[in-house]
Amino acid sequence: MILRVKDVSVARGGVAVLEGLSFEINPGQALIVKGPNGVGKTTLLRTVAGLQPPFKGQVEAPEEAVAYAAHSDGLKTMLSVEENLRFWADVFGQSDIEKAIQAFDLVELRSRLAGSLSAGQKRRLGLARLLVTGRPIWVLDEPTVSLDTASVQLFADAVRAHLAEGGSALLATHIDLGLDVTMLDVGPFRAKQGDAPISGYDEAFL
């Protein structure tokens, strides 16, 4: 379950934003991607998750091994915490949601509607979803947004346990999780022709 990124360029709206990126993540390892806003971290993560093809280069990941979590958690406000998790567990062919509920301290919230949760509680539920995917490679975009210190700690523990079990993770975050991981600053990989004044072209027509 090795994730390899070989000389990859990623594009947003048809314009390359990052180029010449190469890295490899082995089981038990995590890589944290850093860089200024708008540099293309999200685009890179979406590319690795397979949501968009790389502009150039290759992303080599085993089939159906990547669990992706983005800015929005994919929660249904009219379903309870438990129903939301149960749905994702069914989609990924898993049955155990208790571990995820315990790990992110959702026991007391389990029958509450997701719509009535606070932003931080929603985020915890969104992260608990990762545990019910049963997938070895986590690709997480700003996972700690709106989490308090205690919840960040819960998340760091979950990542640590995941790595200890032979999983791996690719994270874009600005917070120090206290993990022993490799950092990658993508700033220097900014594409030469990047930041072309093309942003917003699709809105202009609509």
Partner: peptide, 14 residues
């Protein structure tokens, strides 16, 4: 699409 479910479903086994 709005709540991000589509992105997550697209990366799921379905």
């Amino acid at each position: 699409w709005e709540d991000g479910t589509l992105d997550l479903v697209a990366t799921s086994p379905l």
